[in-house]
Design a protein around this nucleic acid. Structure first.
Lengths: 211, 211, 211, 211
DNA sequence: GATGAATGAGCGTTCATTCAT
DNA sequence: TATGAATGAACGCTCATTCAT
C-alpha cells in the first residue's frame, strides 16, 4: 500500500506537491503538455526549484499527473459498476460523470508527446489495463443483457470516449451542452438497434494495448 | 480589389508559395502548428527568408493553410450535395471522404493557438460560414425526408465531426478502422429512431459563430 | 582535401566562425571547457545563436578547437623534423616552440570532460595518431644517434610534455621562465646519461591510444 | 585567540565536521572544486544545512580542505628530512610518497578558482611558507653536498612537482607507471651533471609567494 | 543543532524573426 | 528576389544558499 514514494513528506512539502500536481493538471489541460514549467510553478505558488525537486523533469510530472487521473477514472468506473442497477446505467454514469475528468484524460490522449512518455510507464500501464478490463466487463454485461449492440468492443467505446472528452475548453456553456448532446448521440449509436452492422471487426482492449 | 493578394506573382514565386503551403500543411498535420519555420522552409525547398517574404509571420501562414483547407472541404461538400441522390447520402459521403481532409481540419480545430488566430480572420470566417450553411441545408433536407433525427442541428454535427476527425495519427491501420467504425456509430446515432430525445436544445450554426 | 564541412562559407560567416574558434580557444584555456557559451559568444563579438549555428553544442565546439590545435602541433612537429639537423634538435625545437600552443594542448589533455569528448572523435584521433607517429620517429632517431637515453618511449615524452604544457597562465613572466627551465630540466633528464635506468618499461604511443 | 575555531565542538559535531572534510577532499579530487555541495553533504552522511553550518560557503570549505592537505604534506616533508640520511634521499622520499597526497595537492594547484581563493587565505599561506622553507633547506643541503645541480631553486622544484602531481586519474595502472617514470626522469634532470646550465635564473620560494 | 525543503539566479539550447549578401 | 547568417528572447534544468520545521 505504501507504493507512493512520496507518502512520507513533511506536511508543507506534501501541500506543495499537491499544489504542483493541481497546477500542472490545469495547465496541461489548457495548453497541452508543453506548458512552461516556470508558469506551472508560479501557478502552484512555488519556485521552479521546488517543482524540480519533486519531479525531476517534465516527463516525471506528466507521468504523475496521468497516474492520478487514471486512478480517479478507475475509481469512478468501479463505483459505477458497483452502484448502478444495470451495466448500461453504469456505462452512462461513468461517461457522464467523467465530465470532471475531461481535462486529465485530455492529457493522456491528446498529445503525441504525452502518449509516448506514458507508453513506457508501468504504473500508468497498470491503471490503463485495469480500466480497460472494467470497461470490457461492463460492455459484455450490457451486450448479454441485450441493451448494447453486439458488434462493438471495449476499444471502440474507449476511442469514442477519448474523442468526445477532448473538447476544447473555451466557451464553457456551449462546450457543456455539446458534450452532453454528443454523448447522447453516441450512446444512441451504441444501443441495440436494427440495421446494418458496423464495418470491420470490433476493436478490443487488446487492440489498444500497443497503440 | 484583387481578392487574392498573390494572384499576380511571377511563375517561380507562385511555385515557391505553393510549395511552402504544401510543406506547411504536412508539417502542421504531423507536428501541430508550432512546427519550426526553418523546417517548413527546408521541406519546401526554399530558404526561411523566402518563406517570410510570402507570409510575414507564422499566423499568416496558418491562416493561409486554413483557408486553403476550408475551401477544399467546401468544394467537397457542394459536390456531395450536387451528386448524391439524398441529403443523407451526401452527408455520409462528405463525412467519409473527408478522410483525406482530416489533417487540414485538425489544424483548424485542434490547437488552441490556431483557433485563436483563425477566429479573427475574415477570410477563414467566410469559408466557415459557407460551409456551415451548406451543412445546415443538408441536415434540414435529411430531417425533412425523415432520415435524420429532428432534434439535432448543424452545430451538433459539426462538433461531432470535428471530434472524430482528430484521431491520433499513430498506428495507421487501427486508426483507419477506428475512424470508420466511430463514424458509423455516430451516423447510427444521428438516424431517425424512437426513444428519448437529446438533452438541451439543438446546436445551430449560429452557436458556433462566436466560439 | 575538402574534408572541412565549413570550407564554403560566406566571407562574413567564415570570419565569425574563426572568431568564435579563437575566442573559444582562449576561454577554454583560461577557464576550462565549461566556460559559459554566452561569454565565448560575447568575446567573439557574436550572439549565442550564431555560435550554436556553427557548433550545434558545446561538444562540437570543443572538438573543433581540439582539431585545429592538434593540426597546428602536427605541422610544427613535421616542420621541425624537416628543418633541424638532428632529431634531438627537432625535439628541442618542437617542445620549445609549442609554447604558443600551450593553451590549446591544455584543452585536449587537462579536463576529464574534454578528453571523454575527444576520445570518440575520429578526426581528433587521426591527428593524435599522426602526431604520436611523428614523435615516435623523432625519438627513435635520437636514440639511434645516441643523444637520447634508450629507456624512454614516445608515450613517456608525450606525458611529460602534456604536463609541462599545462602551467597555470597567471603571472606571465614567471610562467614563461618556469616553462623554459622545467623544459630544460626535463630534456636533461632525457639525455643519454650514466646511472640507474628508469622503473618499469617504456611507455609507447600504443599505451596512450586507449587512455 | 583560539587558533582552531572548531576546537571546542561537541563530539558529534566534530565527527560531522571531519566527515564533511573527508567527503569534500574525495569529491574535490574526483570532480574538481565545483563538485555539488549537496553531493558532498550526502557523501558525508549529513544534510546540506549541516555542511553550511560548519562552512559558511564553498570557499570556506575549499580553504579548510586545503589547509588540512598542506599540513599533511608539511608533516611528510619534515619526517623525510628527519629520517633520511641525505637531503637527496629526503627529497626523493617526499616526492615519491606524495603519491598519496596527490589528490589534495591537485586541489590546491589545478583549478584557477581554487588558487584564487587560497591566494588570500592567511592560514594556507602560512602552511605554504613553511613548506617552501622546508623544501628550500633540503635543496640547499643537497646542493652543498654536490648531489643536486646548483642552478635550481626551491621554486623550480615546486613547480615541477606541482605539474607531475596532477596527472589525469583515469587508467590507473598506466597513470602510476607514468608518474613513477616522469618522476625519475625529472630527478635525473635535477642531479648534478656536466653540460650547459639552465636558462634564466633559479626560481626561488619568494618568486612563488605572489603567484 | 540537524535536516532537507524552497528559492531563484544562471547557463545551455532552440527558434522566430530580421537583415546583409 | 532568394538565401541563409545573425540576433536575442524564452524556456528547461541545476545548484548554491537560506530558512522553516
Amino acid at each position: 500500500m505504501a507504493a507512493d514514494p512520496d507518502a512520507r513528506l513533511r506536511a508543507d512539502a506534501r501541500r506543495n506537491r499537491d499544489q504542483i500536481l493541481a497546477a500542472a493538471r490545469e495547465m496541461f489541460a489548457a495548453q497541452g503538455p508543453d506548458a512552461p514549467m516556470e508558469e506551472i510553478a508560479r501557478t502552484a505558488g512555488v519556485g521552479v526549484g521546488t517543482l524540480y525537486r519533486r519531479f525531476p523533469d517534465r516527463e516525471a510530472l506528466i507521468r504523475a499527473v496521468a497516474q492520478e487521473s487514471f486512478a480517479q477514472v478507475l475509481d469512478e468506473a468501479r463505483a459505477a459498476t458497483a452502484e448502478e442497477p444495470t451495466a448500461w446505467d453504469a456505462l452512462v454514469r461513468l461517461v457522464g460523470r467523467s465530465h470532471q475528468l475531461r481535462v486529465t484524460i485530455q492529457l493522456a490522449l491528446v498529445s503525441a508527446r504525452a502518449r509516448e512518455i506514458l507508453h513506457d510507464d508501468p504504473r500508468t500501464g497498470e491503471f490503463r489495463e485495469a480500466l480497460m478490463a472494467e470497461l470490457d466487463r461492463t460492455i459484455k454485461t450490457a451486450q448479454a443483457a441485450g441493451t448494447m449492440r453486439p458488434d462493438v468492443g471495449a476499444g471502440d467505446v474507449a476511442i469514442m470516449l477519448s474523442q468526445i472528452l477532448r473538447q476544447p475548453t473555451t466557451n464553457h456553456d456551449l462546450a457543456t451542452l455539446a458534450f452532453d448532446r454528443t454523448l447522447s448521440i453516441m450512446l444512441d449509436g451504441l444501443r441495440t438497434r436494427p440495421g446494418e452492422s458496423l464495418p470491420g471487426r470490433p476493436i478490443t482492449a487488446e487492440d489498444l494495448r500497443d497503440r
